[in-house]
Simulated assay, not measured.
Amino acid sequence: MSKKNAIFFSCNERFIFTLSVALLSLKKYNQELLKNTDVLVYYQGFTQADKDFLNRILPCKFTEYHFAVETDFNNINFKHFTQLTFARYEIFDLLDTYRKVLYIDVDVMIGGDLSYIFNNFGDKSGVAMCKDTQKGLTLITKNFVKPLPQYDMTVPCYNAGVTLFCDNIPHRRELRMWCYHKTAEWLENLVCPDQGVVNVMFQEFGIQVEVLPDICNCLPSNPKYLDKNRHDVLIYHCAGGGVRFWTYTWNSLWQPFYQEYLAMGGKPHTDKEHAWLKWIKKFNLQRWAFFDRSPDPQMHPARFIKYVLAYPFKYWFK
């Protein structure tokens, strides 16, 4: 019997609302895929009621997560990112059970059929990721306070927010614990902790990365992210903190899923909204297409001016 595929999320109680949006959007566009693909959720802090709620959206297989080695859990890298960012290391052992596992961060919205990723990537090298272009920093040195002299810091960085791991990845049985031990060893030197470790792992074990197109992990730095004419983006990922779907600006793609979550009895998020989003909601400006995904003029004034100048030509005079 051939092995199934899986989609992997990790989440704590604070981000149940955005995991719910991810699951609702996954369900909308992936009915056929989900017939033979397990949804795995590694968690900390969930109650049984939380798990029951998420299962109402999609049947999930839940596993309580524990960091695999002793380390300093008061370190800033655990306070800022939480232990759950390292749950992806568990995927290497899960490949005993699954043929391919697609790791997806929870601060995402699914926009299309993810079968494209499973069907077209991973068979050659065992791993597929998008290149990282956040803030114009494209090399793996961005993940470290100080460069690691034993590795080449000038190679491209791959964004860990969406990663396809396959059971043919070289040295698979060594990878899980190597990642845990290096995380503990390098903890004070890590900026993007899991991403730094995984990118160096490729060098250590001579693993080639198949490059996913940017529609598979569309980041806020990507022009496609705010382009209302795009209908091919498979995963929108609000990596970068400030440009979150729920706090930055009105996003007409994300809002219906969030409203569906609330209608199911989900708790509203408690994150502070930008003044720009508050203003849009206060005056019901979201009814005008201009304000949908409009850049925050206070946080990104240059981006907003460019948006204002380009808007008539891009969306009115089509």
Rank of each mutant, 00 (worst) to 15 (best):
I140Y: 00
K142G: 00
P156R: 00
N251E: 01
Y43C: 04
F118A: 06
K142R: 11
T163N: 02
Q286T: 02
P268H: 06
D72A: 11
I280H: 03
N229F: 06
K4N: 14
S10G: 11
R173V: 06
P59I: 05
D105K: 02
K61S: 14
V233W: 05
D292V: 03
F53E: 09
F283T: 08
F121I: 06
P256W: 05
Y116H: 08
H300R: 13
S294F: 01
Y248W: 15
C192S: 13
K182G: 01
K314P: 03
P223E: 10
D167G: 08
M109C: 08
T37Q: 06
E13D: 13
Q31K: 12
Q134N: 11
I280W: 01
N159D: 02
H269K: 00
V233T: 12
P149V: 03
I207R: 05
K100F: 08
K281G: 00
T97I: 14
T37R: 00
W254E: 00
K142I: 12
V155R: 09
D52I: 12
P213R: 08
E204K: 13
G242V: 14
E70M: 12
W254Q: 02
Y103E: 07
P295L: 10
Y307M: 03
L33S: 01
Q208A: 14
R303I: 10
F205N: 01
S2Y: 15
F257L: 03
E174S: 13
C216A: 14
W250M: 10
V211E: 14
K51M: 15
C179A: 13
I57H: 11
D296H: 10
G136A: 07
A87P: 06
R303T: 11
N189I: 08
K131R: 14
D72H: 10
A160H: 02
V197T: 04
C166Y: 06
N30H: 01
A263Y: 02
R14P: 00
R176M: 12
Y43S: 05
V145H: 13
F291G: 09
W186P: 09
V69S: 10
L285T: 09
F73W: 12
C166G: 04
P312L: 13
T183P: 07
A128Q: 09
N199Q: 02
E174A: 12
F245N: 01
L95W: 04
I76C: 03
D152F: 09
A302Y: 15
R88L: 13
F17E: 00
N168W: 06
V211D: 01
K278T: 12
G122C: 07
G122W: 00
P170N: 11
I169M: 11
L26N: 04
W276C: 09
